[in-house]
């Protein structure tokens, strides 16, 4: 218990100050809810929070997996052919430079105003770090290993499978860590702008309907799952790094 206070005293201090500030000014909950109010809304409506959180997590996870797969696939393409590399790299940079918000209406036109578009947005946001890091990782080989594979008569395919891809795994783990937090953010933005479910949508709706306590509760949940995703992927990255280097 004492340890809990030592580690989290900053957060607790903010909560206490916030509560005191709201009470002292006697704010209406529509203008500024108290932490207590937010907390009460969360525990008295668990169904709404759980349902929307799981939708957002699903969109983020599927989109993240897709983004990593696309990024890795493109990296392998550029690895296997300088000609393709000349096409893929600039296109990837261009695609990742376009503000995603401006892409949403276009993608929604193609895929419809549904979850498929949300997942596509997450893929677009997350593929780029995966592409960049995997491309670098495929070339960051253990010293002398390229000569070894050449002398041992390894085929190009065997070199990819047995040398370049395993060598790129630690970099892929870095890409996963960077992309995981972005994936949740991207899923929420997509839901906020066009969705029908999920935390982003819940936030948009509750804000419009002046359910400020719920809007704050949504933010708390979103922050919590982003931090959790970051911590989990950091841990995973450390494990993978230890295993592959």
């Amino acid at each position: 218990m004492a340890r809990f206070f030592v580690l989290n005293w900053g957060i607790l201090l903010i909560l206490v100050a916030w509560e005191g500030w709201v009470a002292a000014n006697d704010f209406n909950p529509i203008v500024m809810p108290s932490p207590q109010g937010v907390f009460m809304d969360m525990i008295s409506n668990p169904g709404i929070y759980v349902e929307n959180t799981s939708v957002t997590l699903f969109v983020a996870a599927v989109g993240l997996a897709g983004g990593l797969a696309v990024g890795t696939g493109l990296a392998i393409l550029t690895w296997s052919s300088p000609l393709l590399s000349g096409i893929v790299s600039p296109t990837a940079v261009l695609f990742s430079s376009v503000p995603v918000v401006s892409l949403i209406p276009i993608i929604a036109r193609i895929l419809g105003y549904n979850m498929a578009t949300e997942i596509a947005i997450v893929v677009i946001i997350t593929f780029f770090p995966s592409f960049v890091f995997t491309t670098a990782g495929l070339r960051d080989l253990p010293h002398g290993s390229q000569d070894l594979f050449s002398v041992l008569g390894a085929s190009r395919r065997a070199t990819l499978r047995r040398l370049a891809l395993p060598a790129a795994v630690p970099n892929m783990a870095i890409a996963l860590r960077l992309a995981a937090a972005h994936a949740i953010l991207a899923a929420m933005i997509a839901e906020f702008l066009m969705g029908t479910t999920g935390l982003g949508y819940l936030f948009a709706v509750t804000k419009q309907e002046f359910l400020t306590e719920r809007a704050f509760g949504t933010s708390v949940v979103a922050t919590a799952i982003s931090v959790a995703a970051f911590l989990a992927t950091s841990l995973l990255e450390r494990r993978i790094r230890a295993r592959f280097t």
């Binding site: 000569d147 070894l148 008569g153 592959f244």
Partner: peptide
Amino acid sequence: HALGVAFQDHALLPW
């Protein structure tokens, strides 16, 4: 696959 080599860099795969 009829050559055997050992260089100063041991070139072992760390994984």
